[in-house]
Design a protein around this nucleic acid. Structure first.
Lengths: 151, 151
DNA sequence: ATGATATTGTTGACGTGGACAACAAATTTC
DNA sequence: GAAATTTGTTGTCCACGTCAACAATATCAT
């Protein structure tokens, strides 16, 4: 049996958040941390991070697009995308073809392997999403998603 | 006059997100990035980061609490908190007093300066929050906050 | 056409954040 | 009193966002 009434140890946390529970940013951070954790764990089998997944998905949906376009779409820096692509390309999942009309641009594409891995990742990501929906509750999940989409 | 029909340049982005707009994590990341950016900019005058702010607020609301308790409350690693406190302490905003009953623990407190800076930070954070509410719209903002609080 | 400007991809560097592992000191447990 | 646990700490690693600079290429102005 545990001590139940010690005032200094083992008592319930009773730590207050103060103004923190009026700060959206705080909760957004907490949510982001655990969503990403779950995603990473579930996609460990294919070794695809959230960022890599988003890159693969958008390339898959828009083959031939440029790195600038992709970076702008994802809201990341061109510099960061270069490194993401370096990794994916070294794993043989994506490729940079020369753009026909613009010597500066690269036309991004998935390789055959990229397609396969993306398909596996998609399945796992769907499980992740289902887990999220279950954990948050279907209602809040829907509201959340729809609210966030409108930005 | 601009070229309006060139299929390869200057046309509207028309980049599709693919499955991405069914992924909550993607939107959470986007939201988190811009919320934090706004926060950092608005609190640049007092040079307080989101993480530092949350530390100050919780210490202020629970003077004397330990680092383990604080870390658990904020959902960060003890190791990370050590470094946050190191900074804040070197700026003279917080202090670690010896805990009366437990030689391992530190009783965390704000200094006088800490109180003042926190007050300023709070005011700026309130402006930040107001900006968020305005940007998201009062309705979605409220829904978001209430949904996220229930975790 | 030619010179100025802008875009694209790239590299380097910096600071923050989260995750782990290990450790000494102190405390609790048995 | 020995074993296990907690607490604060340090070190390390990697992901991420940011910024500056640069060469190559393309566009714009006149």
């Amino acid at each position: 049996m545990r001590k139940t009434q010690s005032p200094r140890r083992r008592s319930a946390p009773l730590i207050e958040l103060g103004d923190l529970d009026e700060r959206l940013g705080y909760f957004v951070r907490r949510l982001r941390v655990w969503v990403f954790q779950d995603f990473i764990q579930r996609l460990a089998a294919v070794d695809i991070s959230p960022a890599q997944f988003s890159v693969l998905v958008v390339i898959g949906a828009n083959p031939g697009l440029s790195q600038s376009q992709l970076a702008a779409t994802l809201g990341i820096e061109r510099a960061r995308l270069v490194r993401l692509l370096h990794r994916l390309e070294s794993r043989g999942l994506t490729q940079r073809l020369p753009s026909s009309a613009d010597g500066r641009r690269h036309a991004l594409q998935l390789t055959g392997d990229g397609d396969k891995v993306l398909a596996q990742a998609r399945a796992l990501a769907a499980e992740h999403e289902a887990a999220l929906r279950k954990r948050l509750g279907p209602g809040p999940y829907r509201r959340l998603l729809e609210t966030l989409r409108g930005l």
